[in-house]
């Protein structure tokens, strides 16, 4: 009886915490969904590249004392350049445009990055402590850690920026054109290869931001990315492949599912919600909540 009351009492806190994390999940998924929407490829190296961004933020903090939230200024452009180069001179060339090949090339990339991380950074878990790591925000019914709140709003802000980029700028217009109709875009003079690489770069730049925002409240080790791979895929499929709104809503749903699932079912079994949602959505509604009908 008491247990049930306690569970009920902890529920609002779990939901709010889930929403906080969900925003970062959404940012991770946003990169994935953008890449899928334009390139029609599933980027299996997503988790590994996120892990790389987290290490970048970690070492910027460790060696130069740069606050992870400020590190975004460096990590995001660097991620964009890395993503652009990876696609332009790597994935795009090697995969010969075949769906399964891209999956395999990005899988190979993930293996290389992950093990290079073990080699260079060791397999030890790393965390950072900021001067405000233990500060909290009181919402009346729940105390939230300050880093989580900052990350939440920063994620939303970056999602907004991305939406503006896609819907208001020339680059965004070109990206949408390529996503809709490759040949047509080529005919009106858009450099399609450049747009592909730029889209991949923007997708990885989202990861750069997400890595910086995650670091204050999450550990990093060479395998951290794996935790987010299935989560990000689930969000993307749930929200609808290629849908930005879908990624945002999906991120919140998954964040809350995970946190509430953990509360009700316990730490171990609680993670099952994500893979279950993933299987169900693939089977019952593969276009997702906001995806275009195919």
């Amino acid at each position: 009886m008491l247990d049930e009351f306690m569970l009920l009492g902890m529920m609002p806190a779990a939901v709010v915490n889930g929403l906080m994390f969900g925003a970062i999940y959404a940012l991770v998924a946003l990169g994935l969904t953008l890449i899928y929407g334009v390139l029609h490829i599933i980027n299996f190296a997503h988790g590994a590249l996120l892990m790389l961004a987290m290490y970048a933020a970690f070492y910027l903090f460790r060696h130069f004392g740069i606050d992870p939230y400020f590190a975004i200024v460096f990590v995001v452009p660097a991620s964009f350049v890395l993503g652009y180069a990876l696609y332009r001179w790597g994935i795009g060339k090697l995969a010969h445009g075949k769906d399964e090949n891209i999956l395999l090339v990005t899988l190979g990339l993930a293996i290389v990055i992950e093990n290079a991380a073990i080699f260079f950074f060791t397999a030890d878990q790393q965390t950072i402590t900021l001067s405000y790591s233990y500060d909290t925000v009181d919402l009346g019914f729940v105390f939230l850690s300050l880093p989580k709140v900052i990350s939440f709003f920063a994620s939303l802000f970056i999602c907004l920026l991305l939406w503006l980029l896609i819907s208001k700028t020339d680059l965004g217009r070109a990206i949408r054109a390529v996503a809709k109709e490759r040949q047509g875009a080529r005919l009106v003079g858009i450099d399609v290869e450049h747009i592909f690489a730029a889209t991949y770069g923007i997708g990885i730049a989202c990861l750069g931001a997400a890595g910086c925002l995650l670091l204050p409240s999450f550990y990093v080790d060479p395998f951290t990315g794996n935790i987010f791979v299935l989560v990000a895929f689930t969000i993307v499929v749930l929200g609808g492949m290629g849908s930005i709104v879908g990624a945002l809503v999906g991120g919140f749903i998954i964040g809350v599912t995970e946190s509430v699932g953990g509360l009700i079912l316990g730490e171990s079994l609680g993670q099952i919600g994500i893979s279950l949602i993933f299987i169900l959505i693939l089977v019952l509604r593969p276009t997702g909540l906001f995806g275009a009908k195919s």
Partner: peptide
Amino acid sequence: EAPGLSMIVYGLILIGIVGFLP
């Protein structure tokens, strides 16, 4: 005697095979 190194080679081989030796 380095952890991860053989897996790096595995990953590169996978990419190379997909790219050049389908």
